[in-house]
């Protein structure tokens, strides 16, 4: 067998340019065949996902909206080292560092924390380099399982700590799950 005739998928067809016969030139048979194919699709299950009501399931490694993680005791991990901002190719991250007060030990894990932490979601390309750079396991794109929602104003896309930090209930639940295991 010559190499041109091998068909690994079994669907290869050899195209020929021969003259059409009279029956073929009437097109009618071909048209009915086509109608048969399209009507089969009519009754097929639809591929559509009705978006706002249904959402597509995310893959485990899907990179969506960032989340600043809390540890088991509900303290923020981030220490405002700035490595994420440095590694960000889109320069989407800005932060202001602050020193932890004595009575804030239950809020922040490290002595230094980010008092302001902002990501411009219009700049962000969701590459995940911030996640990779973080030495404190503080920022993740995979755990929020959320898309950045659409909006009409550019200002709305600058996400502060109010939107980024993991909700406390989620941290509590994670701890409970961990203890149960």
């Amino acid at each position: 067998m010559s190499i041109q005739e091998i068909s690994l998928s079994g669907r290869k067809k050899v195209v020929s340019n021969k003259e059409m016969t009279f029956v073929e030139r009437m097109y009618l048979i071909a048209i009915f065949k086509g109608l048969g194919i399209t009507i089969k699709h009519f009754f097929r299950k639809k591929a559509t996902i009705h978006y706002p009501e249904q959402v597509r399931e995310f893959s485990p490694v899907y990179r969506g909206q960032h989340m600043l993680k809390r540890d088991e005791q509900g303290r923020e991990n981030c220490t405002a080292c700035g490595l994420c901002a440095l590694s960000c190719p889109a320069e989407a991250i800005t932060m202001v560092a602050a020193e932890r007060k004595a009575d804030e030990k239950h809020l922040y894990r490290e002595e230094k924390y980010a008092s302001i932490y902002e990501i411009n979601m219009l700049r962000c390309i969701f590459c995940g380099l911030c996640e990779e750079a973080c030495p404190k396991d503080a920022i993740y794109l995979t755990i929020s399982k959320e898309l950045v929602p659409a909006s009409y104003n550019r200002e709305d896309f600058i996400f502060g700590k109010d939107k980024l930090v993991m909700p406390l209930e989620m941290a509590v639940k994670n701890t409970q799950l961990k203890n149960a295991n």
Binding site: I39, H41, F42, R44, A47, T48
Partner: peptide, 13 residues
């Protein structure tokens, strides 16, 4: 609607 159904979509809804 027919166009959508023939193309495995659902059309205006």
């Amino acid at each position: 609607k027919v166009a959508a159904y023939l193309q495995d979509r659902v059309g205006p809804n």
